[in-house]
Amino acid sequence: NQASVVANQLIPIQTALTLVMMRSEVVTPVGIPAEDIPRLVSMQVNRAVPLGTTLMPDMVKGYA
């Protein structure tokens, strides 16, 4: 099973992502693949992302 990127904390809207905000976890449905974590650093979320939420491509500006 492929690991996805999951929020390690509440990430407020417009926040630039850092490594400490994300973790990898095998979840359903599958979100952004964990191997993309380095690419996500400094990208902004376009909505508030609660703790434990799987990051989906449409939540990160410039990802999809």
Rank of each mutant, 00 (worst) to 15 (best):
A7W: 03
V26R: 09
E25K: 14
M22R: 00
Q2G: 11
A34N: 05
A48R: 11
N1S: 15
E25H: 08
A64F: 12
V45I: 06
A48I: 12
E25C: 08
D58A: 12
A7Q: 02
V30M: 12
V41F: 05
L19N: 07
G31P: 02
N8Q: 09
Q2W: 14
L10Q: 14
T28F: 15
M56L: 11
P29N: 05
Q14F: 12
T28Y: 12
A48W: 12
N1Q: 15
V30Y: 12
G62E: 10
V49Y: 03
L51H: 11
A16C: 07
G52R: 03
P38D: 09
L40H: 00
T28E: 14
Q44F: 15
M43S: 06
S42R: 13
Y63A: 03
L19Q: 09
P33R: 08
R39G: 10
P57T: 05
T18W: 04
L40S: 00
P29D: 05
Q44Y: 15
V27S: 05
P12C: 05
Q2T: 14
S4N: 01
K61P: 14
P38S: 10
D36L: 12
Y63D: 03
R47Q: 12
Q14C: 08
N46P: 01
L10E: 11
V49E: 03
V6G: 02
Q2N: 13
V27D: 01
Q9M: 15
L19S: 09
T53W: 13
Q9K: 12
P57K: 10
P29G: 04
V41S: 03
L17M: 12
S4W: 03
N46A: 09
A16F: 13
I13T: 13
P50Y: 09
R47N: 07
Y63I: 05
T15C: 06
V26G: 04
V49P: 03
V41D: 02
Q14R: 13
Q44V: 15
P57E: 07
T54S: 04
V45R: 00
I37H: 00
P50T: 09
P38H: 13
V20E: 12
Q2L: 13
V6F: 02
L40N: 01
Q44E: 13
T53F: 11
N8A: 13
G52Y: 04
V20Q: 13
G31K: 02
E35R: 11
I11C: 03
A16S: 14
V6P: 01
Y63L: 06
P29K: 05
A3T: 07
S42M: 10
S4D: 02
P12Y: 05
I32P: 00
R47L: 07
R47F: 08
M59K: 00
V45Q: 00
T15P: 01
A3S: 08
G31D: 01
M22A: 01
I13W: 15
M56G: 04
V20D: 15
V45W: 00
A34E: 07
A16L: 11
I32H: 00
A48G: 07
D36I: 07
V45P: 02
S42F: 08
Q14T: 10
M59I: 05
M56H: 08
R47E: 09
R23H: 05
V49F: 02
L40C: 04
R39Q: 10
A7T: 09
V49Q: 03
V26W: 09
L17T: 00
V41H: 03
E35M: 12
V26Q: 10
V20T: 12
I37D: 00
Y63H: 04
L19E: 10
P33E: 04
P38N: 13
M21T: 02
E35S: 15
Y63V: 04
P12K: 07
M59V: 06
Q44I: 10
M43I: 04
V27E: 01
T53C: 08
P50S: 13
G31L: 02
L17V: 03
S24I: 10
Q9N: 08
P38V: 09
D36Y: 12
T53K: 08
N46H: 08
G62L: 07
A64C: 07
V6M: 04
Q44G: 03
M56C: 06
T28L: 11
V27M: 06
P38T: 11
M21P: 02
A34Q: 06
R47I: 11
P33W: 10
D36P: 00
R39D: 07
M59P: 00
V26L: 11
A3Y: 11
V5H: 01
L10C: 09
T54L: 04
M59Q: 03
Q44R: 14
Q44W: 09
L51Q: 14
G31E: 01
M22D: 02
T54D: 01
M43N: 04
T54C: 05
